[in-house]
């Protein structure tokens, strides 16, 4: 994302946006991890804490931003509702930080975690 100001240019890299989005995702109730985007279904590679942003894909096309999130949920939560909460939270946080509207936030649930007792 680039923005021209009187003194120069402001550029925000997709990775920075990914970092922001990842932080917003992890705030959401029901999310217990992020996974690497994979073309195969059924094998979720859960990312370590420091690599969370790799579970986010940011697409910038003609100043339109779409964000794809690859997430792992806690077993037993209402998936559609948690996904909806994530979309709202990510859109709100990223738009607030960037001041640019987000076109779409897509949530890909890559796996569910079953917590033991």
């Amino acid at each position: 994302m680039t923005e021209q100001s009187r003194l120069g240019r402001i550029e925000v890299s997709p990775q920075a946006i990914a970092g922001l989005a990842a932080t917003a995702v992890l705030e959401c109730y029901g999310v217990v991890g992020m996974a690497r985007p994979t073309p195969y279904s059924g094998f979720a590679e859960v990312l370590q804490r420091e690599h969370h942003r790799r579970g986010v894909r940011v697409n910038v096309n003609n100043e339109r931003i779409t964000i794809d999130l690859y997430v792992v949920f806690e077993y037993g939560v209402r998936i559609s509702e948690v996904a909806q909460n994530i979309m709202e939270n990510v859109k709100f946080r990223v738009e607030k930080a960037l001041g640019i509207p987000i076109d779409a936030v897509n949530v890909h649930v890559q796996g569910l975690r079953l917590s033991g007792n």
Partner: peptide
């Protein structure tokens, strides 16, 4: 669970 709405509902 089935009727959970929003973060607080979940």
């Amino acid at each position: 669970l089935m009727g959970a709405r929003g973060n607080s509902g979940v």
